[in-house]
Write a protein that binds this DNA or RNA. Structure first.
Lengths: 211, 211
DNA sequence: TTTTTGGCTTGACAACTGTCAAGCTCCGGG
DNA sequence: CCCGGAGCTTGACAGTTGTCAAGCCAAAAA
């Protein structure tokens, strides 16, 4: 890990900068591979060797790019964040009416639940891990905040279309939707075909009452 | 595990019944010990030897009383259920007004968050595990249902005092409170002193608007 | 008393874990 | 062309894991 030390040096040469970019790119590549396996097996059952086997590398690389396993997982969490906190922003930006926003949101919600179930169960897994492992807390709390803000943007826009303001706090609103999504995800993974439509119905009914 | 076979036999002698009672009592005793360690370390980091070390027994017993580790954890989950799904029922039964119900509920909520944080983070951990491990799903879904019913009893009683009915579905109501509790728990465990009062404020504000 | 048996311990097993040193390969700069 | 080092692999390490057979001991059964 001499690499991390050079990164701290004030004046880096151009070639060092390039090397650091490559280094970080590989870190992210490895984190992405790790996310795949983590999403498949969950935190408790995922080993470095298993991650490596589902990637183009061998298990030794991870010690070259990460100080230890926690460092890798933290990197995974941070990378995951970037991908998910703007998921609904396009819908918010392009919708021109309440109905359009509603349908766009619901469609994205359903698609997420069906196509990215593994990534989301991992999120819930890691958020639970943060309750035990202090090293995860900072990143997890940050992601939670970002997700809360994302939900708030949707609700605000929705209320705006009706000339109103959301009736509850950002925290309560996020808790509501996150709770519903989590429950639907579990049912969906358990093979409950009704999980997705039930979630959509619930959200469709709820939106006008909270905003 | 010849024991489980005898349990299936139709006509048991009185002595066999006593033996089975002792057997089940010990199972629960071991499950309770396991819950302690699980609440301390979380599912991912808990081994049978660690559980045994925090109990009065040695690691071999667990194979005598449980077919494997999953069997033990399932037993833990089921035992946990019995202890938590009636937590607020006394408050519901004794309250004679909206205010009394509110204050009783909030007090219990705060006490739970402060004194049983470890058991609750374990619940969230195991619920996440259920998204990966099918063996947990049935029990977890059942507990979730029971908890939803518990919240619904509170809300119904609260609404009743106001001569109203809850404004949302049981599922949405549970999602809301569960989401808020989960978020508060994480913040509380992260050392946020404001987590508990913030949760209480939020719930106090929310109750009149949903019921 | 002797025998049996349920309840628990002990110790061993193979597999698996995170970690890391040593060494390989191959590319860029000299 | 050669050489150094970055990037990656290999193999080994010490420790831990779930599992389970063998055996011990006290209490019940004979």
């Amino acid at each position: 890990m001499a690499r991390r030390a050079t990164a701290a040096v004030k004046r880096e040469s151009a070639v060092d900068v390039v090397r650091d970019d490559k280094f970080n790119a590989r870190r992210i590549e490895l984190a992405e591979a790790a996310l795949e396996t983590l999403g498949e097996l969950g935190f408790a059952r995922t080993s470095l060797r298993e991650i490596a086997q589902n990637s183009a590398f061998t298990h030794g690389v991870f010690h070259y790019y990460f100080s230890d396993k926690l460092d890798l997982i933290c990197c995974c969490v941070r990378h995951y964040k970037a991908k998910c906190v703007t998921r609904y922003d396009e819908v918010v930006a392009t919708a021109t009416s309440r109905d359009e926003l509603t349908e766009g949101f619901l469609a994205k919600l359903a698609a997420t639940l069906q196509n990215e179930a593994r990534m989301h169960r991992l999120w819930y897994d890691l958020r639970s891990q943060a309750m035990f492992e202090a090293a995860f807390r900072k990143d997890v709390l940050e992601i939670d905040k970002s997700l809360e803000a994302m939900i708030w943007r949707i609700a605000s826009r929705y209320a705006e279309f009706g000339g109103k303001r959301p009736l509850s706090s950002p925290a309560a609103l996020y808790a509501l939707f996150d709770g519903l999504f989590q429950s639907a995800l579990l049912k969906h993974l358990a093979g409950d075909k009704a999980a997705v439509p039930e979630l959509l119905d619930e959200v469709r009914r709820l939106l006008p009452t909270v905003c």
